[in-house]
Structures are given as structure tokens and as C-alpha cells.
């Protein structure tokens, strides 16, 4: 059990890296990289929400199997569930950890509602992962998000140099950086996720 969990976590980090090989949630990584101070809690929050959405995905896939007519409405239902989860979490934070919530205010909503969280049930269905595997995968994705944001924040520090051509300063160089980095992940046969 733990081996599968660990194996799928490593898989999420390397071959099936959602961010670089799937191109999912890159704007969130960029936002986290621009705020190095709260990067750790941002990644923690995001992996928590990913975990919850993974388990919700399992429940959803069992309740509404693929062949049933309601399958068409499944994404909308799941979006509603994620919204409800976000509201609950926001209420919880405002009640108990008001100070920390004040600090995390700008990133809280974007860590709860983003493409990574919404993609979880789909990944679970397409790659036919069992309960433990999707848990490992969700944790791995959280870790992948944290490493991507950490690497990007250090890279952006280095990309602010004067003798870079004017046109590439700022965002375009970050795009090229991530392009080459996701090419590097190709070595793990992680070319294309979906």
C-alpha cells in the first residue's frame, strides 16, 4: 500500500508531472513564485485541496459512472463540490486561524480553485487509479507544485539582469525558462500527459 503511494508520488513528480508535462496550473505556479515568503503555505494549501478533490473525485466517479446519462453533468457537479469545499475551508480559516487567513488572503482563493484541483477526478478516471494511488498522486502533485514554485522563484531572481534583450525581460523569459525545463522532463518519458 505505502509502496504504491510512494511510487505514484514519485511518478507525479517526474514522468507525469502535471505542471510541466500537462501544462496545468502554470499561472498558479507563477503567482506562488512571485511570493517566496508564503510559498510553503501556498503549496501546503494547494496539496491539501488537491487531496480533498482527489477523494471527492473517487466518490463522484463511483456515484456517477461514465455510462450513465448524468455523466455529461459531472464536471458541473464537481465544480460545485469544489466551490463548497472552498467556502467551508474559508469559513474554517476565518473562524479559527483569522491571523493566518489575513496573511494568506491573496492566495487562498487561487490555491483552492484552480486547474490542478479540478483535474484530479479526471486523472483518476483516465489512468484508472485506485484510492491509494490517487492519494499518492495528489501528494506528489503538491510536492511537484512546491518544487516548481521554488525553482521558478530562484530562477526569476536570476532572470532580472540588465543585459537581457529588452523584449525578453520579465514574462517572456519565464516562458522560455519553463519551456526548456519541461523539455528537460522529457528525459523521464514524460513528454505528454493527456
Amino acid at each position: 500500500m505505502a509502496v504504491q503511494l510512494f511510487f505514484y508520488a514519485i511518478l507525479a513528480l517526474t514522468a507525469q508531472n502535471v505542471i510541466f508535462c500537462g501544462g496545468v496550473g502554470f499561472s498558479r505556479v507563477l503567482r506562488a513564485a512571485r511570493r517566496p515568503k508564503i510559498l510553503l503555505s501556498y503549496a501546503g494549501l494547494l496539496s491539501a485541496f488537491t487531496l480533498i478533490s482527489a477523494w471527492m473525485g473517487i466518490a463522484l466517479n463511483q456515484l456517477v459512472p461514465g455510462i450513465s446519462p448524468a455523466a455529461f453533468y459531472r464536471p458541473a457537479i464537481f465544480a460545485g463540490c469544489v466551490a463548497v469545499v472552498y467556502l467551508l475551508a474559508a469559513l474554517l480559516y476565518r473562524m479559527f486561524f483569522a491571523a493566518r487567513y489575513k496573511r494568506l488572503e491573496p492566495v487562498f482563493s487561487s490555491s483552492a480553485i484552480n486547474c490542478i484541483v479540478l483535474a484530479m477526478p479526471f486523472i483518476q478516471r483516465v489512468f484508472r487509479m485506485t484510492g491509494w494511488q490517487i492519494t499518492g498522486y495528489a501528494i506528489g502533485t503538491g510536492a511537484a507544485f512546491f518544487t516548481a514554485a521554488l525553482v521558478l522563484s530562484h530562477a526569476m531572481e536570476r532572470l532580472k539582469n540588465p543585459d537581457m534583450p529588452k523584449a525578453f525581460q520579465g514574462l517572456p523569459s519565464v516562458f522560455l525558462y519553463v519551456g526548456i525545463l519541461s523539455m528537460a522532463l522529457f528525459g523521464f518519458a514524460g513528454g505528454k500527459l493527456f
Partner: peptide, 25 residues
């Protein structure tokens, strides 16, 4: 690791690119 699990027989370039990303960290 890349030689054992990777897609190509020579994984030197990919490993170097990944390590270049991690070096500032």
C-alpha cells in the same frame, strides 16, 4: 535513474538541464 526509467538511451542532456534548474536552489 534516467538511464533506467527514461525514454532515451543517453539521458545526459536531460539530467544536466534538470540539474541546472535546481542549481540556484
Amino acid at each position: 535513474l534516467m538511464r533506467r526509467y527514461g525514454a532515451f538511451e543517453q539521458a545526459a542532456c536531460f539530467a544536466v538541464l534538470l540539474m541546472n534548474a535546481v542549481s540556484p536552489v
